[in-house]
Design a protein around this nucleic acid. Structure first.
Length: 593
RNA sequence: GGACGUAUAGUGUAGUUGGAUAUCACUUUGGCCUUCUAAGCCGAAAACCCGGGUUCGAAUCCUGGUACGUCCGCCA
């Protein structure tokens, strides 16, 4: 609770000086109390014992006594060597009601100058539909973008389109050379396309890609095919316009299909940048020339070139190849050109990458350093696997995002129909779409990114407890109160702008809880954004919803037709905080459930 | 073989500049719907991978194991 800390620290400093503590080390010892019942902030006094030759218990008591009173301070207790300080509920209420708690301000450390932040995420190869594994990147990245915006930062969401290289080459070759019959014949032992997704290019064209992969291994003319694909890939890497256009015609519909899946999850991008751009504009060629001048530059027997990053401390296989023997560039080389381009248009750069890219990212980072460039921040995430094991399109062990979202909506719809038989089908459909997609997002975002994640249907589709619908429900209740008031002829606006409402002398437990939760909300957002850990904020929002539910139980707003204005004002503050926070996590803040 | 990451109740998780009685949810279990939406609320039971070390104090730091994940392409 930063707002309490700000008030407390100077008081505590005086108090500490009075008993002979002058070093500043205690500031880092002032921690959040473990138990809410004990306090908001606690200072363990054990380290002072040796210095002062007194027992920690005694020191804590002396400190408690020496601490001057302040409106912000509620209970101050010395317990077993700890000094516990609780914020005064009235002071908290005053902060919330009259000082105006806004999200993202005051207590976070915001840079004085507006920074342009560029977040690159997802950037999946456009060769097939999203499965839940690939979606972790998109959900994580988009949430980070949203949280930055909530925090008041200027962010651009960027998708790097891999429009050259072997994968797209294979897709383009297949579309040009295989008939639908051939494709289905080749894939006959595989599950057919879900009829639901017929006509959706990511699902349809991936069949061509898969068939080509199989044919490249088995067919008698596989050598010729390989030569043909190799020719196209080579041409694309030399900026051949016709080939690049053919590639684009092949992948663009697939990419569009993939993006429509993401759109259903509320995920969108501001800019798309094609990898081929850095080949055609000459950046890559210039970069490779520059590498030649480096002292860590090396050449292999066949003329391929590399940088010896081992000389800069990289362990393991330290030769970082940037050019093939035939003179063409490699993916990583283009990636570096891309990074230089990105740095030219932002102050902070964040990449969201799977853990399989760790070494690659390290190499790119070290090479950028070598070039005198800054290194990007990277949010790594661990892979999602299925209970049956690793996700593999090839083995058919895969859950497509489109299927998951469809199932999520269907199950949510079943819940809504059971709870509200009176709702129209239209209403059921809009509620269940919001609840289903939000639940899927939240299920992934609420856990720490570096934690391995096993996808389970029953967890992704859980609508109670720590889920998105739980949060949505709290928000919908707050909205329901407003509707109820309006129906009773109460002017909400007028009552909210009435600043003269006294803070109640006695506050129920639920109200104090809500006030405390609201007061740490902004702190948590700052931490989540600055540390790139969105799950922290997800858990905070759960806490906010839980606190609101307790408040809802303890504090009536409309009782026997009588309006409690203070409760209404607090409820509205909580409702707005919930709504904006939900948007920050990509949870749809519907007003009725 | 080397590098990096992870290990917390029956299950899934929170807790990283060391602090008290370790968080939340599911499951199990006891209560609460003639009062603003019970997708809710209140209560009970249940856990820090295994050894060593540092410290007044270790889930947290160091060290040695074990298990799991990822990487170690002139692929992308």
């Amino acid at each position: 609770m930063q707002m309490l800390r700000t008030v407390l620290e100077p008081l505590l400093e005086t108090s500490l000086q009075s008993i002979g503590i002058t070093s500043q080390h205690w500031r880092s010892m002032l921690v959040r109390s473990r138990e809410h019942a004990q306090g908001d902030l606690s200072l363990p006094c054990f380290p002072f014992a040796k210095e002062l030759g007194k027992s920690p218990v005694e020191i804590a008591e002396q400190l408690a006594e020496a601490l001057s009173s302040n409106p912000a301070l509620g209970e101050v207790n010395a317990v077993a060597g700890y000094l516990n300080i609780k914020a005064d509920p009235h002071w908290l209420a005053n902060q919330v009601m009259n000082k105006g708690v806004r999200i993202g301000d005051a207590y976070g450390k915001k840079p004085a100058v507006e920074q342009q932040i560029l977040i690159e995420h997802t950037s999946a190869n456009p060769n097939g539909p999203f499965h839940v594994g690939r979606a972790r990147n998109a959900i994580l990245g988009d949430t980070l973008v949203r949280l930055h915006r909530l925090h008041g930062n200027n962010v651009r969401a960027e998708y790097y389109v891999d429009d050259m290289g072997k994968q797209v080459g294979v897709l383009a070759w297949a579309l040009a050379n295989l008939s639908a019959e051939e494709v289905e014949q080749t894939l006959d032992q595989r599950d057919p396309v879900n009829p639901k997704w017929q006509g959706k290019a990511d699902h349809e064209r991936v069949r061509w890609y898969q068939a080509a992969q199989s044919i490249r291994q088995d067919r008698s003319d596989k050598e010729e095919i390989e030569i043909e694909i190799g020719r196209m890939v080579h041409a694309s890497e030399h900026g051949d316009e016709a080939v690049l256009q053919a590639f684009q015609d092949a992948y663009q519909p697939v990419l569009d299909g993939m993006l429509s899946t993401l759109q259903r999850l509320g995920i969108a991008f501001d800019t798309f940048t094609k990898e081929s751009m850095f080949v055609t504009n000459g950046d890559v060629a210039k970069l490779m020339e520059k590498f030649k001048t480096f002292e860590i530059h090396g050449v292999a027997d066949n003329g391929a070139e590399f940088l010896d990053l081992g000389a800069r401390g990289l362990k393991g296989k330290a030769e970082f190849f940037f050019r093939r023997g035939d003179g063409s560039s490699l993916y990583a080389t283009r990636d570096i050109a891309y990074h230089i381009w990105k740095w030219n248009q932002c102050d902070q750069l964040i990449n969201v990458l799977g853990e399989d890219h760790k070494l690659q990212a390290k190499q790119v980072g070290m090479t950028l350093t070598e070039l005198g460039q800054k290194t990007p921040d990277v949010l790594f995430y661990s892979f999602i696997k299925l209970p049956e094991g690793k996700m593999s399109t090839r083995k058919g062990n895969v859950v497509y995002m489109d299927d998951l979202l469809e199932e999520a909506q269907a199950q949510a719809a079943a819940v809504v129909r059971e709870l509200h038989p009176d709702y129209s089908e239209e209403l059921v459909s809009s509620i269940s779409e919001a609840a289903g997609t939000s639940a899927v997002r939240f299920n992934i975002i609420k856990v720490s990114p570096d934690k391995g994640f096993t996808f389970r249907w029953e967890e992704a589709l859980a609508f109670e407890g720590g889920s998105a619908p739980f949060i949505m429900y709290s928000h919908a209740r707050a909205c329901s109160i407003v509707r109820k008031c309006q129906k009773a002829g109460i002017d909400i606006e007028a009552n909210i702008s009435n600043k003269g409402i006294p803070i109640p002398a006695q506050m129920p437990k639920g109200m104090v809880e809500l006030l405390r939760t609201i007061c740490v909300h902004s702190d948590v957002l700052s931490k989540a954004v600055n540390d790139r850990r969105p799950h922290l904020f997800a858990n905070q929002l759960l806490q906010l919803a839980t606190s609101f539910n307790s408040f809802y139980r303890d504090c009536m707003i409309l009782k026997d037709g009588e309006l409690n204005v203070f409760n209404l004002q607090l409820s509205e503050i909580a409702r707005n905080l919930m709504r904006t926070s939900m948007e920050g996590l990509g949870i749809v803040p519907i007003e009725q459930m």
